[in-house]
Design a binder for these strands. Structure first.
Length: 596
RNA sequence: CGGGGCGUAGCGCAGUGGCUAGCGCGCCUGCUUUGGGGGCAGGAGAUCGGGAGUUCGAAUCUCCCCGCCCCGACCA
């Protein structure tokens, strides 16, 4: 394959585009790979489309190698299947909707679970047909409230989505594992550095869902890793470690105190330490000694709502994402003045365990952070304005209706796996881009769409499913994020738009003839060549373009040609060497094959 | 949806009441230069986001609208 820069549809930009913030967006636009069309909607130019198809090819090859079968659904879908799963409604404003000339409703597919499930239901009805894994590489549409970071989060994007169909839990586990292995091979070939994190808390069952997060500071996901073991999880899925319970004997009795002018945790702690009769003997009070009771209103899909109070140490905030994940399908909304008026038992700013719990007159559900174990003593609200209760002991003076693990996760928090094993391991936080997600859907979905097969005893059994996704267009951006320097992109070979960027410099006709000859020889031996055969373009421009575009090997045919040599530079390492023109083809071809 | 910022040539920007709207890059023509975005000369390219208003006069002031970017909310 030979690409001539003299005719290539390309215009590199000398300056950064004003609307691009993150490196991948900036460089992909500057190097002439993509152009923005609308918010979150991009066109792929020749170089960019080549890179895109390389990523797509790697995905397809690994899916095929794993034995999965490719299908292709339309992006334009009728309303009916999505009505059957209630997603026409549930998807809300994120769904691109349209109507045909008769007024019939259509949508642009945001994901295709319905279509896959119904297709299998349509054609298969025996356990003998399973297991089955189908996949497609499809353009997806989601009307994101805020697309961002170029092609990292678009409204139109390309995704590989697969679905597995099994009759047994063990079968699902095996299908899941096959996908996991295929994903590892896929992302390794793309030279992405990533972490596989648990996307569900341990309580909900271990490996049922994992995300592949490419390490990247501008990524949208926050995850934790243990410094001593291999535990890794999305922050939404981290299980907090409860401290050991404290014996109740000898703990001071609870006492209610006037605490005027203490609207915040800080002022409350300051007052508690300032007044001698309230101070602790062993150490000063900390914010973490206060029990903060956060009230939210939980709205259920049927429209009903009820207050929920979460009790947690005062030095931590409730992590909204974690809370939402736990409350699904309910949705937490802010508790407003009108809500307080409707629940007089809740004294704003002074809510305490004394008024809380399903068994109390007010009947308000009260859930506790795992750190509020038996024997811990707290300063907390006394359910009267201007008063707090001190030395209120969990398990002695109050209990919750249960536990809820929704406090923010912090750098340095203990690792749950290490804690369970009696080791000391701490969590560190990092940001990542979600490039893949594997998920054991189970039977819930098949039940909703009535996907059953007959088993060997002739009984109807509900199929169990897995769903698996790779963001193909997003992977292009993720690779760009991880493979660039201050001069431009630095593609891994398999992803790069060419293997060799052959630059002819100067105005000596012999240089161009030699470059043409070299290019022809390389193409002959199977090397993909991009030849900068532009006349009258200064060497500086050509060098800068070659570095910006990021092809892994740069070969310069120029002033050294009179000595019979050309220069070969590794884009990633910057290493360069001179090579005799005679035999340069085989030398370069060998170096190309040795590239990562 | 809340907060912030920005809309002037293909791109990056200057111009805050004055007559013909400017600079750099890019583009076209000619000459020159050829190992790090070179030089000289000439040229094309703009409904100054849109509308309404104030004024002798509006890119500039006022009002309304639209769009884009960033942060947050949201995100199978």
């Amino acid at each position: 394959m030979l690409t001539r820069m003299s005719t290539l549809f390309l215009r590199t930009l000398r300056e950064d585009p004003a609307d691009a913030e993150v490196p991948s967006h900036r460089l992909l636009v500057r190097a002439g790979y993509v152009r923005r069309v609308a918010p979150g909607v991009f066109s792929w130019l020749p170089l960019g489309y080549r890179v895109f198809r390389n990523v797509e090819r790697v995905v397809r090859e690994e899916m095929d190698a794993a034995g999965f079968q490719e299908v292709h659904f339309p992006a334009l879908l009728p309303r009916e299947p999505y009505e059957r799963t209630n997603r026409w409604t549930e998807y809300g404003p994120n769904l691109f909707r349209l109507a045909d000339r008769r007024g019939a409703d259509y949508l642009l597919g945001p994901t295709h679970e319905e279509m896959f499930t119904l297709l299998v239901k349509d054609l298969y009805s025996s356990y003998k047909d399973l297991p089955l894994c189908l996949y497609q590489i499809q353009t997806k549409y989601r009307d994101e409230a805020r697309p961002r970071a170029g092609i990292l989060r678009g409204r139109e994007f390309v995704m590989k989505d697969s679905y597995s169909f099994d009759t047994t839990d063990a079968g699902l586990e095996a299908s899941y594992q096959r996908h996991r292995d295929a994903y590892i091979r896929t992302f390794d070939r793309m030279r992405l550095q990533y972490t596989i994190v648990s996307a569900m808390s341990g309580a909900m069952g271990g490996s049922a869902s994992e995300e592949f997060l490419a390490a990247c500071d501008v990524g949208e996901d926050t995850y934790v890793r243990c410094t001593t073991c291999d535990y890794a999880a999305n922050v939404e899925a981290v299980a907090s470690v409860a401290p050991p319970p404290v014996p109740l004997d000898g703990l001071p009795a609870a006492h209610v105190e006037d605490t005027p002018d203490t609207p915040t945790i800080e002022t409350l702690v300051a007052l508690s330490n300032a007044r001698p009769e309230l101070a602790r003997a062993d150490r000063p009070w900390h914010a973490g000694d206060t029990l903060k009771n956060v009230v939210v209103k939980v709205v259920q899909p049927d429209g009903s709502s009820a207050p929920l109070v979460v009790g947690l140490p005062g030095d931590r905030e409730v992590d909204l994402k974690r809370l939402e994940a736990v409350l699904l399908p309910g949705e937490p909304v802010a508790f407003e003045e009108a809500d307080f008026a409707a629940h007089p038992a809740l004294v704003k700013g002074y809510i305490g365990p004394g008024a809380l719990g399903a068994d109390k007159p007010a009947g308000i559900r009260y859930l506790l952070d795992p750190r509020v174990v038996e024997g811990t003593r707290w300063i907390t609200g006394a359910n009267q304005p201007g008063r707090h209760v001190f030395d209120l002991v969990a398990g002695r003076d109050f209990v919750g209706d249960g536990w809820i693990d929704v406090a923010e996760v912090r750098e340095g928090d203990p690792c749950p796996v290490c804690a369970a094993a009696g080791r000391e391991g701490a969590l560190t936080q990092a940001r990542g881009i979600e490039i893949g997600h594997i998920f054991q859907l189970g039977r819930k979905y098949a039940e909703a769409l009535d996907l059953t097969v007959l088993d060997e005893h002739g009984r109807q059994v509900v199929v169990t499913m897995g769903s698996y996704g790779i963001g193909v267009s997003r992977a292009v951006a993720a690779i760009a994020e991880q493979h660039h320097d201050d001069k431009g992109l630095v593609w891994p070979r398999e992803i790069a738009p060419a293997d060799v960027h052959l630059v002819a410099t100067g105005k000596d006709e012999a240089v161009f003839e030699a470059a043409e000859g070299l290019a022809a020889g390389l193409v002959e031996s199977g090397v993909r060549v991009m030849l900068d055969d532009r006349r009258g373009v200064s060497p500086g421009v050509k060098f800068n373009d070659s570095e910006l575009i990021g092809v892994p090997l740069i070969v310069v045919v120029g002033k050294k040609l009179v000595d019979g040599v050309v220069e070969v530079k590794d884009r990633a390492s910057g290493e360069r060497r001179d090579l005799a023109v005679d035999g340069a083809v085989s030398g370069i071809a060998a170096q190309v094959r040795a590239l990562p």
